[in-house]
Amino acid sequence: MTTPLLEVADLAAGYDDALVLHGVSLTAAREQIVAIVGPNGAGKSTLLKAIYGLVRPRAGSVRLAGVDVTGERPDRLTRRGMGFVPQIDNVFPTLTVAENLHIGSLVLPRAERQAELERMLELFPLLAERRRQRAGSLSGGQRKLVALARALVARPQLLLLDEPSAGLSPLAIDLVFEKLLEIRALGIGVVMVEQNARRALALSDTGYVLDMGRNAHSGPGPALLDDPRVVELYLGGSRRTASSSTSTSTPSGMNPPTK
């Protein structure tokens, strides 16, 4: 069996004295979309941040293509081929679209930057039209595309996405999810955390359901959608929202401080 692209084993992390993740494991492969879903406070975003070195892991390990990168600095992970698209504050607002992409391309050898940048603008025609516009003047959906392109221009092997659909209009969500399929087709592994569990699982090759900072269920994404336990608990089978179904039963599952 080949080494998985990303291998997270028993990762524990938290903020100050609140432990949010209590040992989460997951694997992701190239050309695969992995969706991490779960109720509010399940530790989804914290998991992504702990993988990416924005939150220091307390225990467990993160391996990228077989190399131990646990707790490594974000800029180094980006250079190693792990890209990250934050949920908010994901563009440099005073820089133009082209400048945002140029910053992303700096991890590449100098001679390859321009070509890669042009390739990205081909992949995102919407951004090509707005290349000289300041990123701060774009809509939420357009910013998300800038952030995706900024991460992709560095030619990552693996892309981590924190809530790619959050705060977007339905039209923009379609656009972003469509792009994810294109990104997968480029041979890149995608790991995303999503509030919109139905859309994310339907799209994904593998899904992980987190609850209270632990693995609850996992399996092929569409199969999880049909799993009665998952539906009952997290997908609001009885029209309950995901967060209210757990906040009553798990008082410890508080929202981690965002940011």
Binding site: Y52, L54, R73, P74, D75, T78, R79, F84, P86, D89, N90, V91, F92, P93, T94, L95, E99, H102, I103, G104, L106, V107, R150, A151, A154
Partner: peptide, 20 residues
């Protein structure tokens, strides 16, 4: 550009691969 990007958002600069 790197300096302007850092002024915009230091964390994002690190995410983009800049040695802060």
């Amino acid at each position: 550009r790197v300096l302007r990007a850092m002024a915009d958002d230091r964390t994002l600069a690190a995410v983009a691969g800049i040695d802060v």
